[in-house]
Amino acid sequence: MIVDIKDLRKTYKGGFEALKGVTLVIKEGEILALLGPNGAGKTTLISTICGITNPSAGSVSVGGHDVVKDYRAARSMIGLVPQEINLEPFNKVIDVVTYSRGLFGKKANPAKIEEILRQLSLWDKKDSRVMELSGGMKRRVLIAKALSHEPRILFLDEPTAGVDVELRKDMWDVVAALKEQGVTIILTTHYIEEAEAIADRVGVINGGELLLVEEKAALMQRLGQKTLQVDLQAPVDSVPESLSAYNLEIAEGGNALRYHYDTSGESTGITRLLGEISAAGLQLKDIQTEQSSLEDIFVGLVKEGAA
């Protein structure tokens, strides 16, 4: 456990409740994706952990250090990549990155800065002024700044919002490389595919509440569940005795049978089932399959939260 968030609440001046009691434990070395729509509280959560906003209630500790009382020790461990491209436009790339290292109290280390800039393909641009860079390059500079002081935890707030596909893939590679180095990474996103691609765990946040935190693998298993619906020519009252092994459900007032199966299993049993349905004397009208996606789970959770 590297970050421990207990019943964190944040009410802004004017009464807006951005966080309504978030409790979350972040494990060392993991990649946690916080998924949620705009205005869900993702940025407020990150801002409160990093010291940009003060919590109204509850507590956050980073590496065992309270982020308010022991802010120096806590913040020293954290690198933050903000959502907006906030950079000093007139300064050189190498200067803004070196500045960040100094600000975090670390001794100058040009070799380390070079390593970071090279890793992010920024070394060629080190003497360029920030304003001369493309949007994607600027985002890399933000990451370089966050990494300049060798943090153990990296927060990425919507790192790939408005970024082209190629750069997004690059960003994921950088994240994977950092994980190799043992850095704990928390990223917010509203792209489900991003969470799927790189996260170890996924948290869903909406309306200032954490609705779910789950291992991605477990979520993916739910994703693997498919449902086969067989529409019948004539309705049935009950599942025929011969089909009892399939654990079928009667749907649509007896006009359909539903079968749940796992695509990741060795055999889905569909062929056998269809054969046995016709052997039982039932006439098929149509068949359809549906898959529960992370998107469905997500949308379902968000709707529940809103209701």
């Binding site: 913040r75 933050l80 600000l103």
Partner: peptide, 17 residues
């Protein structure tokens, strides 16, 4: 200026008093 261009985030999240 940092407030205006948003770089103030870094001062606030740095281990500085």
């Amino acid at each position: 200026f940092p407030k205006f261009i948003g770089t103030i985030y870094e001062l606030l999240s740095a281990p500085v008093s």
